[in-house]
Write a protein that binds this DNA or RNA. Structure first.
Length: 337
DNA sequence: CGCGCTAAAGTGCATTTTGA
DNA sequence: TCAAAATGCACTTTAGCGCG
């Protein structure tokens, strides 16, 4: 098979260096199949059509790899290689592929057309722009094709089932080390715009550096973090003041709906959102009691501790309980004044 | 919801990959 | 096309414990 394209483009129009070039991929595989998946998606505020092609090959005669060619109706292109390591066994992969294969025979024509095009073009280019144009031309041709027109329509989703958040509260937390990372990584890019960032190893390096910094050297980052945090808090307060409470309710409904699926698949659940600045309710009589006697139970573990405190509370006489109830009423009175 | 504490989960950074 | 997952680490926040 002829050499095709020098590299993959990712969605940001950068050549992905670490990924195999399509050409070498094609060469490595003893056989190549091209499959098509038709997908229409609607998520939140946008709606678009995406046509996805799978280039399947038994790379090195062992691992199965798949290339994604995503064609969007608006002319965007995305090529990426999907690697299946330990996480996705080849079994799982092939069933996934077969599913798409059976999706419709009318796609065969388009498959072969693309395959032929790739085989016979023999074009190669080192220019990203040129590569983009090549793909774009083909897409323009494709989006007008009968096949694309017959693709199924997007399923509409209720807002409360959407993957897109209805409202998104601003995040407040930050820390000195994060700011240090940002600072250092920005500097690396400034020094060398071609710098290839491997974030995980980079953070390791930065962490070691961070540990060697003196308190004096850490100070500006700590101060900056404090500063940033107070700004974030102010912004968050503003946000919560202005947000429509009905949308917050809807967002929590959406999260509950999503959590049904997440729970089934064992994924961590989305938390409900709530206003962290809302006034807290007063400690109850029992809460006051816990605070009073807590230090007496430090010798046992936290769970055991609370059980013991509860037991002690239950053994209190009515008079003693009454004292705590009065303390609660007093604080309530003070609060209302 | 609130008490105090701990274990566990979440958060930031940047980026690519994957999913919808 | 956007959003989430994944990546690693320190730091930060929160769930959970029981009761009213």
């Amino acid at each position: 098979m002829s050499t095709l394209y020098p590299a993959f483009l990712n969605s940001r129009d950068k050549i992905v260096g670490s990924t195999l070039a399509l050409s070498s991929f094609v060469h490595k595989c003893s056989s190549i199949q091209i499959q098509i998946a038709n997908s229409f998606f609607k998520g939140g505020s946008y709606s678009h059509n995406q046509h996805r092609f799978y280039f399947k090959g038994d790379e090195n005669n062992s691992k199965i790899s798949i290339l994604n060619l995503n064609l969007f109706r608006d002319g965007q292109t995305q090529i990426s290689k999907r690697r299946y390591s330990n996480k996705h066994g080849s079994k799982e992969l092939s069933s996934q592929v077969n599913e798409y294969l059976d999706a419709g025979s009318s796609k065969d024509e388009l498959f072969s057309r693309i395959l032929k095009e790739i085989e016979t073009s023999g074009k190669r280019t080192d220019s990203v722009e040129e590569l983009k144009k090549l793909l774009k031309d083909r897409i323009n041709e494709l989006v007008d094709s009968e096949l694309i027109k017959t693709l199924q329509k997007p399923k509409s989703r209720k807002m409360t089932n959407s993957i897109k958040p209805i409202v998104k509260p601003p995040k407040i937390s930050t820390n000195p080390f994060n700011l240090y990372c940002k600072d250092q990584i920005t500097a690396l890019f400034d020094e060398n715009p071609q710098f290839q960032l491997d974030i995980s190893s980079q953070v390791k390096i930065l962490l070691e550096k961070w540990r060697t910094l003196s308190d004096e050297e850490k100070k500006p980052f700590k101060e900056k973090a404090q500063e940033r945090k107070s700004i974030l808090i102010k912004e968050a307060e503003q946000w919560w003041e202005n947000v429509d409470p009905n949308l917050v309710k809807l967002e929590n409904i959406r999260r509950k709906n999503i959590n049904v699926e997440r729970k089934e698949s064992g994924k961590p659940l989305l938390r409900e959102i709530k206003n962290p600045f809302a006034p807290k309710s007063l400690p109850t009589a029992y809460a006051i009691f816990v605070k009073d006697v807590y230090s007496l139970f430090l010798n046992v573990g936290p769970a055991e501790r609370m059980k013991s405190i509860a037991q002690k509370w239950n053994h209190l006489s009515q008079d003693e309980k009454q004292k705590y109830k009065e303390r609660f009423l007093e604080s309530k009175k003070e609060h209302s004044d």
